[in-house]
Design a protein around this nucleic acid. Structure first.
Length: 973
RNA sequence: GCCCUGGUGGCGGAAUUGGUAGACGCGCAGGACUUAAAAUCCUGUUUGCCGUAAGGCGAGUACGGGUUCAAUUCCCGUCUGGGGCACCA
């Protein structure tokens, strides 16, 4: 009876489906455990072998926890709104709902193939109206909330209105407009529009302005992704930055809490560090510089107020609101030209360009608050409008970029660091003494910082300020395939559709606001989204609908809550279910979500917690990052060569042979053209055809062309251009390729589909091989060749239970000590490894156990039954079959997936003696065995008496004797 | 450019807390079984030198330094691969 994985896996899957073994109840006496995978976006390309890596890991952990007696919630769903589906719709005319449905069905099929233990009855998809109903509802809660800085929590906006009616906003400055001041009388006198405009400056979901990529030719707004090398990806049209009215989430109000509560999370330090850097808290000061023209002043933010006497110029962001008004007539043309240039530049380019300094003088001068010195005011792209105040003070002797700027524009540099500033580069040490700085001279940097801020505050020329790099999150997209906003404009004032003015007398209050069908995905007028084209939908009895849609991260910011109670039509999830499942205990996903999704969902969780809907303010207690599985691509060289008549021809040639001078082709000599860049030629799908020496034979390349449906007549022509410069042992012509490891992607022709692997080797082999490739968090290349080893291991394990000829061979003989030792060592290692998510070493341990049990010829139930359960998290299908066969009459009630993980017993594992490596001066010379409870003195005596050790001591007296119990012995001479 | 992260045999990787570097697997080489193949099993496989052999000596975890009785592990510097950088998800 051989290991027939196809039958075994089908049988197990049918059983699990029939008995609904993965159905999870919200009512249980068992302790709960919530294990979650990051939401996949169902792309048209389907899953490749890299995607399931994290899913397999969480599946193993979930199955293990179930076997250990936990009630485990392990759901899966789809992040189904997004740009690629819309892009595809624009190209093919197919409705995103149709293609998304198709893609989800494909994903589901591929996932099922691998044998995950998801409770599919809880699946959600963000594009489902019954789901986005609640995304819209949460948006409305944010819209109707503000952030109380004193209480440090989000509160209903009604409470804020009550305060305004009583005392105005004297105690509650607006986060959106610091200068805004009014008292209760003024508030009551304001019109409805004025009041709503003010409230907008407090709401957690609010409207403001942001820059977007605008493409005039396409008449639409483009995502960063769609802008390549400064032009639109589609069509290559010019693009520029354009200011547009947008929805935002006021995540900046949560900045401090998002920062401090990182400390209690079990995330990798790297991940926390990335979030900390993203939030970017910095202490410093705001400094006010009056302009020499007198009317206005500039406010800058600086983290180095101690360097204020080193200020030689000021720089404003080109978008700064004062630029036009302060620019002198003589400089106006230059400034406008420069601003046009900056419009074409992405933020990334602006920040990363260090070699080429650009900027423009406004003609204005600012007055130094201490020295009254006049300093020129410039604009430059390296200052960003969104950070700090959008203006900086230039201190060239202490800041590299300021230094480069001053050098480039010949601005004279004030030295405040004495001899430590060389004149060649800025002196940016943060632990030093300030010089040449009036009352700050001689002070250390921290002291000078304090003194400078105090003086600024005395003079009313500045104040202490904490600044965050974090910016409010843009929440509008001028797109079709996303959640519509539950917002209606009445006389240009936005109202939530749950407000009386909207739903009184109108049937407009209900959620969800369904995404209407469209026939065309072309943009609306003036950069609006496609929804703006549907007049019938936009115009309502109450007013006009918002035509933007929400961004991709809206639905994924709260989906982990919906899984707890996915069919609830009255609430986003019942409080009982939320209290029971609570935080996600383990969250597995890629690092690419480090600062996007993971930050937004933390904010949403905090807001929902503050508003009293949930009882915890951090969504993901423990977070693990899986690495990427990369693809293998093979390259030949593409060269140009010329014959004696000057006729040139392009060839493909073995990678290393492109250095040759001449080649022979069709009986003629060709000279390889040097000094033209040799390009790499990607051989498509080569990973399926290369031999073990990275060679492609003429024969196998022909097969590739056949797969790619090249016209058979052309295959021979195509093969003509290859210079077959090698002959294999079997007499095949070949070309030597170069292997490169890169991202697995359809466009790189290097993807491996898990379906193919499962068909060939079975899901159990696939699961174990993915884990065996290496540590979960490491990136590593996929290599199908290595899977044989894992497959052989499963077959070998199978043979412990069944003989190919005689069938089941498990017996009831008592197990020997040696066999029990192997079993319990394995159980211990597996349990420990699973708890620390080291699945690759678990697989190794199973291999070791099976090798050893095979050598001992062990077919005993006492050993093999626990072993079958132990491998269940990894190879559940095989485990099910083995466990069933071990049952009383070859069929048990229930499933191995619901049995109990065997506990290891210490008594079978402990050893009494240890073979110690004995080293002299750190170099291991011999091994000696000692009992673990031996006296150190005895050991020392015996070691020093040993012949080999004596030889290495060369008669010298040992200086030191090091004995680490259970580890090693070292004699120092 | 900035932030995060990695670099160990021909390849994927192991070494869990500073304690025998290379477990386990692939590949490769040789062998057994077989008419043959598949499957399976056995042996060897970091590298240099010495030795017929058993074995012995030395080097070695990207590179250069340092701390330590002891460094793949800790510290400093350099090179280099990957991820992110706010509208891809």
């Amino acid at each position: 009876m051989e290991y027939n994985f196809t039958d075994i896996e089908k049988k197990a899957k049918d059983k699990w489906a029939k008995e609904e073994v993965y159905k999870v109840s919200n009512d249980s006496d068992k302790p709960k455990c919530y294990i979650l995978d990051m939401f996949p976006y169902p792309s048209g390309a389907g899953l490749h072998v890299g995607h399931p890596l994290g899913y397999i890991a969480s599946d193993i952990y979930a199955r293990y926890k179930r076997l250990c007696g936990y009630n485990v919630l392990h759901p899966m769903g789809f992040d189904a709104f997004g740009l690629p589906a819309e892009q595809y719709a624009i190209e093919t005319g197919q409705h995103p709902a149709v293609t998304t449905e198709k893609n989800i069905a494909r994903y589901r099929e591929q996932l099922d193939n691998i044998g995950f233990c998801y409770d599919w009855s809880r699946a959600v998809r963000t594009s489902d109206p019954s789901y986005y109903k609640w995304t819209q509802w949460i948006f409305l809660q944010l819209f109707h909330s503000w952030y109380d800085r004193k209480a440090n929590k989000a509160k209903p906006i009604k409470e804020l209105v009550a305060i305004f009616e009583k005392e105005g906003n004297g105690n509650i400055p607006s986060p959106g407009n610091d200068a805004l001041r009014f008292d209760s009388v003024q508030w009551k006198d304001y019109s409805e529009k004025e009041q709503r405009d003010i409230l907008m400056q407090y709401r957690l979901a609010y409207q403001g302005y942001a820059q977007v990529w605008w493409c005039e030719a396409l008449g639409t707004v483009l995502a960063n992704d769609e802008v390549v090398n400064g032009v639109s990806e589609r069509g290559g049209h010019p693009v520029e930055r354009k200011n547009m009215r947008q929805w935002f989430l006021r995540i900046t109000e949560f900045a401090d809490r998002l920062l401090t509560s990182l400390d209690i999370l079990e995330w990798s330090e790297a991940m926390k560090e990335m979030q900390r850097n993203w939030i970017g808290k910095s202490n410093g000061a705001e400094v006010k510089f009056d302009l020499s023209s007198g009317e206005v002043s500039l406010t800058v933010f600086t983290t180095r107020p101690d360097t204020i006497f080193g200020v030689d110029f000021m720089v404003l962001a080109p978008e700064h609101e004062l630029v036009d008004s302060i620019t002198t007539p003589e400089q106006n043309k230059a400034i406008q030209d420069y601003k046009t240039y900056v419009k074409s530049r992405s933020e990334r380019e602006r920040m990363s360009e260090v070699k080429q300094v650009t900027g423009c003088f406004t003609g204005a001068y600012a007055i130094h608050p201490f020295t009254q010195k006049q300093v020129p005011v410039w604009i430059s792209e390296y200052v960003l409008a969104g950070y700090g105040t959008g203006a900086i003070m230039g201190v060239p002797s202490g800041d590299e970029r300021d230094h480069a700027f001053a050098k480039h524009f010949n601005i004279s540099i004030t030295n405040i660091f004495g001899s430590r500033y060389t004149g060649e580069e800025a002196y940016s040490s943060k632990t030093d003494i300030i010089e040449n700085s009036d009352f700050l001279s001689g002070l250390s940097i921290p002291d000078a910082t304090e003194a400078a801020i105090n003086k600024l505050e005395d003079l009313d020329a500045g104040k202490r300020k904490v600044n965050f790099r974090l910016r409010d999150a843009g929440f509008s997209r001028q797109r079709y395939w996303g959640e519509p906003f539950p917002i209606i404009y009445v006389d240009d004032i936005p109202y939530g559709n749950d407000e009386p003015i909207i739903h009184n007398n109108h049937d407009l209050g209900k959620l969800p606001v369904e995404l209407p069908h469209v026939d065309s995905y072309s943009p609306g007028p003036e950069g609006q989204g496609p929804l703006a084209n549907i007049q019938d939908w936009v115009e309502t009895e109450a007013g006009e609908r918002e035509t933007n849609t929400m961004p991709g991260y809206a639905g994924s910011s709260w989906y982990f809550l919906r899984y707890m109670d996915p069919h609830n039509d009255n609430e986003f999830a019942s409080r009982k279910a939320i209290d029971y499942w609570n935080q996600v205990d383990l969250y597995i996903g890629g690092t690419e979500h480090a600062v996007g999704h993971l930050l937004y969902s933390r904010m949403w969780t905090k807001a929902l917690c503050d508003l009293g809907y949930i009882g915890f303010d951090e969504p993901f207690k423990k977070l693990l990052n899986q690495g990427m599985i990369q693809g293998q691509s093979y390259f030949a060289k593409h060269i140009t060569a010329t014959n004696k008549n000057g006729v040139s021809h392009n060839f493909f040639i073995s990678y290393q042979n492109s250095e040759k001078e001449t080649i022979n082709w069709n009986g003629e000599n060709y000279t390889i053209k040097k000094n033209i860049p040799f390009s790499n030629f990607r051989i498509r799908y080569a990973h399926l055809f290369v031999d073990t020496k990275d060679r492609i034979t003429r024969k196998s390349l022909k097969e590739i062309f056949e797969i790619e449906h090249v016209n058979p007549k052309n295959i021979e022509d195509n093969l003509m251009d290859f210079i077959w410069d090698g002959i294999t042992e079997d007499g095949e012509q070949y070309i030597q390729c170069k292997l490169e490891v890169e991202k697995m992607s359809k466009s790189k022709y290097n993807v491996v589909n898990p379906d193919d692997i499962v068909a060939q080797y079975g899901a159990d082999t696939f699961r174990m091989y993915e884990m065996f490739l290496g540590p979960l968090d490491a990136s590593k290349p996929w290599d199908t060749k290595g899977i044989e080893g894992v497959h052989r291991f499963l077959k070998k394990m199978w043979r412990l239970y069944a003989d190919e000829q005689t069938g089941w061979i498990v017996n009831n003989e008592p197990a020997t000590d040696a066999e029990l030792r192997i079993l319990h060592k394995t159980l211990r290692k597996i349990s420990e490894d699973i708890e620390r998510f080291s699945f690759n070493t678990s697989v190794s341990q199973f291999m070791i156990a099976v090798n050893e049990l095979s050598t001992l010829g062990c077919h005993k139930r006492a050993i093999l039954e626990p072993l079958a359960i132990a491998i269940c998290p990894f190879a559940p299908h095989m485990a099910e079959e083995l466990w069933q066969q071990l049952g009383p009459d070859s069929y048990r009630d229930g499933s191995v997936t619901q049995s109990t993980f065997p506990q290891y017993e210490e008594r079978y594992v402990t050893e009494s003696a240890k073979m110690y490596p004995v080293a002299v001066n750190g170099k291991t010379r011999i091994e000696m065995e000692f009992p673990l409870d031996a006296e150190p003195a005895t050991i020392e005596k015996e070691v020093l008496a040993d012949e080999t050790i004596q030889k290495w001591l060369e008669g010298k007296t040992p200086k030191k004797f090091i004995y680490v119990k259970g580890k090693m012995i070292n004699v120092v001479v």
